[in-house]
């Protein structure tokens, strides 16, 4: 059983490994010109360079701060709206059409207006990120609450529970897996959008490092940026995933039954 799991994990590594070998082969022999795709060794050196100079850390810190604030703003507002719509039918009736309309708008389409309203400084980036993070959070929270089985609600009706006890005993635990999925989607959206925001407007940050590197024809730095973004996003999702299993693991396996 354990062996099977390890084997399955290893299978996922095969294609990346082949790609890496191909990358190394094609670039070290300059079959692909280095200015178009730098070799792995160059990427590693550049990464080490950026790392040891503290440049990477500084810019990552800025990006992660933006992600943090944008994520919090988006996740909290999304959670509140999703909860309100899920718990109170009138709120849903009033707001759901508007919300569904809003979520059809790709977040990037807000850029011109957001820049007009907020300039290109931090508030623009944070609000932009929160717009994107808000949507999956609200959707998943709503879905979670709407998905609370009616049969459980009947049980507590018989026990004459007050609304708070219903919320605490049934609705929140039942909606948690969906809310947790919402959180993960929300974070990954926030991380993608911070790069988008930084590509559009200046300021320190990993996205901006890439814009500047592109303008200065530093293809290696651009590629380091891409890889760092991928690894960070992957790591953040993994951490949330582990937290999820840690706190909801039991609960999950039961729902799967």
């Amino acid at each position: 059983m354990k062996f099977q799991i390890i084997k399955n994990k290893l299978l996922g590594l095969i294609i990346p490994l082949i790609l890496y070998v191909a990358w190394d082969f094609l670039t070290s022999r300059e079959i692909i010109p280095p200015e178009l795709l730098p070799a792995p060794k160059v990427i590693f050196d550049t990464w080490w360079d950026l790392q040891s100079s503290g440049e990477l850390a500084l810019n990552m810190k800025m990006s992660l701060l933006r992600v943090g604030f944008g994520f919090l703003l988006g996740a909290i507002s999304g959670f509140l709206l999703g909860t309100a719509m899920g718990l109170w039918k009138p709120v849903e009736l009033y707001l759901n059409p508007l919300f569904n309309f809003f979520r059809q708008i790709p977040v990037v389409a807000w850029i011109p207006f957001l820049i007009l309203w907020l300039g290109i400084d931090e508030w623009f980036k944070i609000v932009f990120i929160s717009f994107g993070a808000f949507i999956p959070m609200a959707l998943k929270t709503l879905e979670g609450i709407k998905g609370v089985p009616a049969s459980y609600l009947e049980v507590v009706r018989v026990f004459e529970y007050g609304w708070f006890r219903v919320l605490r005993t049934v609705i929140v635990p039942s909606a948690l897996p969906s809310i947790s999925t919402g959180l993960r989607l929300c974070l990954s959206e926030a991380w993608m959008l911070v790069i988008g925001a930084e590509l559009v407007a200046a300021g320190e940050g990993i996205g901006n490092v890439m814009v500047i590197a592109r303008r200065l024809f530093q293809t290696d730095v651009v590629l380091v940026g891409v890889i760092v973004i991928a690894i960070t996003g992957f790591a953040m999702d993994k951490v949330l995933g582990l937290l999820e299993t840690r706190f909801l693991g039991l609960h999950r396996s039961q729902n799967a039954q």
């Binding site: 049969s151 635990p173 039961q254 039954q257």
Partner: peptide, 14 residues
Amino acid sequence: RGVVFQDHRLLPWL
């Protein structure tokens, strides 16, 4: 009035 349903309806998280 207590009630027992056909599906036990125990809350899986408790």
